[in-house]
Design a protein around this nucleic acid. Structure first.
Length: 920
RNA sequence: GCCCUGGUGGUGGAAUUGGUAGACACGCGGGACUUAAAAUCCCGUGAUCAGUGAUGAUUGUGCGGGUUCAAGUCCCGCCCGGGGUACCA
């Protein structure tokens, strides 16, 4: 019987659908396991061979867990709101929902062919009102909560207004952007409008004037993680800083919890580090500096309080509110000119000019609280308004930026560390002995930092302070294709829609562009009102819908809640999450924040959404080239190209095999090449190659459908895993695929026979055969648990090669092997499993257990020569300790099997299992 | 600049975490079967040197040192690639 993968795969894919094989329900009698993939944005291009890598890996793990008796939740859905569909809509006038639906069906078709074990009955689409009502609902909750820094959790706004009415806001330790202090009496005297305006500064979802990343080309604002090097991540368009009234999420309130939560997660250290850097915790102090001629004191933030004796000037951010207060009349003109110059620069110019120093003297002076010295106050854009207090004390001797500034404007530099050389650059290292520093002199820097802060606190001129780099997430997008805000405006103040009126569905509009008045596209909608009041015109950003979708999979049909208490209690959180690193500072931060918020308001017990995370690597393309001799239509093989003057041309990798060009298909590929001539080497045309991004323009896109048509889904799955570690980025090279395909054919002929070869038998296996099997079980189990799927495939290959050498077609060996293979190659496994006489799916089988009896290796030794002596390494069975090892050595010695004419001089016990014996 | 990562044959990659480096696979070379091809199977394959030969010797995990009976793996100092971040005080 031939291995007819096409028929087999079709048959079993139909079987799985008909039998609802992958449908899961809560089953308290079994332990749960939740395996999740980052859901895809269905683009028009469909899947290429790189996309399923993570899906295959997670599918293997999900199927493995199922074989171990876990009740596995393994759902899939679509991140369907987003820019590309909208831009396509702008160009064509077609509703984004239509294109999205089309793309999504194409994705589904491709995914189905790979044999993934998703429970599609739980599908979640972010653009579905049934789902996005919960995104809107969460936003309403964020609007009605504030963050209590003392309790480190979100609390209802009603608690806050009660506190305000009782004692004002002075003593409230809340995450806020309020610049005003008021008493209870003042609060109670305010009208509702004033109170609501103030509360916006405390809400977790709040509306405020903020400096935002505005992308004129996309016509929308972007979050920090959507901007890189001053350009939009999507499209690469210019981004400028602009002040706008925008919705934001007070994610910065959660900074410390987001940092602390990382410790308990099984994520790669690299990824945790990326997030830690993004949150950017830094410990230091806030210190008040008196300002000459003013009663108010200027607050600065520093991590180097120990260097306060070296302050020779102060610097304000251009946007700082202090600029106006300290600028003297004679400096006004110069300051205004500088501010204007700063305003005009866009983000990219700013980044490009980080090395050039610019600034202006304000005319004002501050007083060093420790030395009493008056120091000038400067204004420069190297100080950021959005970090710390927007003002710094400059210590040019020990900060490279202050140093550059001081050198440029010829300001004094006072060294504070014994023996440091500051002739060329500042001495930034936190080491050495302090000098010129009053009471700090003689201390090491490490001692001086806390000592200085203690003194600041003792004098009451400042306090310890931790700052975070993490900014609040800007949540408004001036776009159509996203979740509408459940917000309406009354007299310009925002109010939330009643929860019972959710979802607020996206209205149809006639065009997807901004209105003539420059309003977002929703400005075109007719009757875009709620109870007669205008609704918000912005929509939510891409990350809104992806921040809690994993909870809705647990309970997808629930119309009362995002997830029921029962389902949430059973499924808890995601045990294994698989996806790319590109979401490290976006989706993976927002989801963690969102989950913590839902936890705070009591919706879910868990505080972290994703326990274990695997980042699959990117699959790059492997491009092929042909070399056309200039001015001709003659192509020269890669090995001979140096002899001619040639042009390198990308050639479709689908007409090249193992770098050998299919000449006929090449001629048919493009009209230009129909009459091409070739200069061959060894009778073949060899193409050049390079690793590049997989893209249409480089003709290196391989799509899974063509691979499946040729080799089958099982081969594709095995090969994607065999290519290398899941986490690693690697090029797709179809060259090696024959190897894994051959392996499946070998397995097939062992089990089902080939030609006149007999199929499996029910004979009792030999000891040697059992040893092969159990060694394989142990290894495969280890490989799967450590995500070494590439070595797992090798392990299968070795096992089948060994069985083939023994001509072993015994069912008692092959059946456990096939069950183990089922997660990797489910279709062939089902077919063989059925051939063994089972009438249930292999999904219901149990993963075999390794029998220790067959794992104990015989004692053996290897001669190794070293420095003229012969050294024997003796490997002992598992579980033998040093004492047992000694006995084994003695036994071995008396056995005299290997010591012919030699005596043991010394026995060295090295690790647990291995003993080195030196003989002469 | 700072913070992560990684560097092993012609290629993708193994190495039980300090124990015969190069598993497995591709590619390549040789052979069997075949009129032939495909398919399948067998043998060889890091480099250099010696030998008719089985084989032996030397060398070998980016570079230079070190620890160890033993280093791809640990330590110190460099070089190169990939990713993150960038006036974050």
């Amino acid at each position: 019987m031939e291995y007819d993968f096409n028929a087999i795969e079709k048959k079993w894919q139909r079987y799985w659908v008909e039998h609802n094989t992958y449908k899961v329900t809560e089953d308290p009698s079994r332990p749960k396991y939740y395996v999740l993939d980052m859901f895809p944005y269905p683009s028009g291009a469909g899947l290429h061979v790189g996309h399923p890598l993570g899906y295959i890996a997670s599918d293997i793990y999900a199927r493995y867990k199922r074989l171990q008796g876990f009740n596995v939740l393994h759902p899939m859905g679509y991140d369907a709101f987003g820019l590309p569909a909208e831009q396509y809509a702008i160009q064509t006038g077609q509703h984004p929902a239509v294109t999205t639906e089309k793309n999504l069906n194409r994705y589904r078709e491709q995914l189905d062919k790979i044999g993934l074990s998703f429970d599609w009955s739980r599908q979640v689409k972010t653009c579905d009102p049934k789902y996005y009502r919960w995104t809107q609902w969460a936003f309403i909750q964020m609007f009605h909560h504030w963050y209590d820094n003392d309790m480190q959790k979100a609390r209802p706004i009603a608690d806050l207004t009660a506190i305000f009415a009782r004692e004002g806001n002075a003593a409230v330790n809340a995450a806020n952007s309020c610049r005003r202090t008021f008493t209870a009496a003042e609060w109670n005297a305010m009208d509702e409008r004033e109170q609501l305006t103030l509360l916006l500064d405390y809400r977790i979802a709040y509306l405020a004037d903020t400096q935002v990343n505005w992308c004129p080309k996309l016509g929308t604002v972007l979050a920090n993680d959507e901007v890189k090097d001053g350009l939009s991540v999507r499209g690469g368009y210019e981004v400028v800083q602009k002040e706008m009234k925008q919705w934001s999420l007070r994610i910065s309130a959660y900074a410390q919890r987001l940092i602390d939560g990382l410790d308990g997660l099984e994520w790669s250290d690299a990824l945790k580090e990326i997030q830690r850097n993004w949150f950017g915790r830094s410990e230091g102090a806030e210190v008040y500096f008196p300002v000459k001629g003013l009663d108010e004191k200027m607050l600065i933030f520093t991590t180097r309080a120990d260097t306060i004796f070296g302050v020779t000037f102060m610097v304000l951010a251009p946007e700082s509110e202090w600029v106006d207060k300290v600028t003297t009349p004679d400096r006004r003109q110069a300051v205004d000119a500088y501010l204007e110059q700063v305003r005009k620069r866009n983000e990219r110019e700013r980044l490009a000019e980080t090395k050039t120093v610019s600034g202006v003297f304000s005319g004002g002076y501050a007083v060093n609280p420790f030395t009493g010295t008056e120091v000038p106050i400067w204004i420069s854009d190297y100080v950021l308004a959005s970090y710390g207090t927007g003002a710094i004390m400059a210590v040019p001797a020990h900060d490279s930026r202050d140093y550059a500034f001081a050198r440029h404007f010829d300001l004094p530099i006072i060294p504070l560390i014994e023996g440091c050389d500051i002739s060329e650059s500042s001495f930034d290292a936190k080491e050495g002995i302090m000098t010129n520093s009053g009471f700090l002199s003689g201390k090491t820097v490490q001692e001086a930092i806390p000592a200085a802060i203690d003194e600041v606190e003792r004098r009451g001129i400042g306090r310890r302070k931790v700052n975070y780099r993490l900014r609040d997430a800007i949540f408004s997008r001036q776009r159509y294709w996203g979740e509408p805000f459940p917000i309406y405006y009354k007299d310009g103040l925002p109010f939330t829609v009643d929860e019972k009126d959710l979802p607020i569905t996206l209205p149809d509009i006639d065009a997807y562009r901004p209105t003539e008045q420059g309003e977002p596209p929703l400005g075109r909608a007719k009757n875009w009102t709620y109870k007669g009041f205008p609704l918000e015109l912005c929509t939510m950003p891409g990350f809104a819908g992806s921040s809690a979708y994993y909870f809705h999979y647990m309970d997808p049909d629930n119309t009362e809640r995002l997830v029921s208490e029962k389902a949430a209690a059973y499924w808890q959180n995601v045990d294994l999450y698989v996806g790319g690193t590109e979401h490290a500072t976006g989706h993976l931060v927002y989801s963690r924040f969102w989950c913590k918020f839902l936890h705070d308001i009591g919706l879910v017990d868990v505080d972290e959404p994703f326990k274990k995370l695997i980042n699959q690597g990117m699959i790059q393309g492997r491009s092929n080239f042909v070399y056309r001799i200039k001015g001709t239509n003659k192509f020269v093989s890669a090995g001979l190209k140096d002899q001619y003057d040639t042009t390198e041309i990308h050639v479709d990798v689908n007409i090249v095999q193992n770098d050998v060009l299919d000449l006929e298909r090449f001629k048919a590929w493009m009209p230009d090449f129909a009459d091409a001539e070739f200069i061959l080497e060894d009778g073949r045309y060899i193409c050049g190659w390079a690793i590049e991004k997989m893209s249409k323009s480089m003709y290196n896109v391989v799509n899974p459908d063509s691979v499946i048509a040729r080799y089958g889904a099982d081969t594709l799955r095995l090969y994607e895993m065999f290519l290398g570690p899941v986490e690693q980025s690697k090029p797709w090279d179809t060259a090696g695929i024959e190897g894994v395909h051959r392996f499946l054919k070998k397995l097939w002929s062992l089990c089902c026979g080939r030609g006149d070869t007999p199929a499996f038998t029910d004979e009792e296996p030999t000891e040697a055969e059992y040893r092969i099997l159990h060694r394989t079980i142990r290894k495969i189990q280890h490989d799967i648990e450590t995500f070494s799927f590439n070595t797992a495939v090798s392990t299968f290959m070795i096992c089948v090669n060994d069985l083939q050498d023994l001509r072993c077609s015994k069912r008692r060996i092959l059946e456990p092997l096939v069950i183990m293979l089922a997660p990797f190659a489910p279709h062939i496994a089902e077919e063989i499993y059925a051939a063994f006489g089972h009438d249930t799916s292999v999904t219901d089988a149990r993963f075999p257990e390794a029998d220790e009896k067959y794992l104990v290796e015989n004692t053996f030794n290897y001669p190794v020569s070293f420095n003229g002596k012969t050294r024997f390494m003796l490997e002992l069975p598992l579980g033998i300790d040093a004492k047992g090892a000694e006995e084994a050595v003695l036994a071995h010695e008396t056995g005299q099997k290997w010591t012919e004419g030699k005596t043991i001089r010394k026995v060295i016990f090295v690790p647990k299992k291995i003993i080195n014996i030196v003989v002469n």
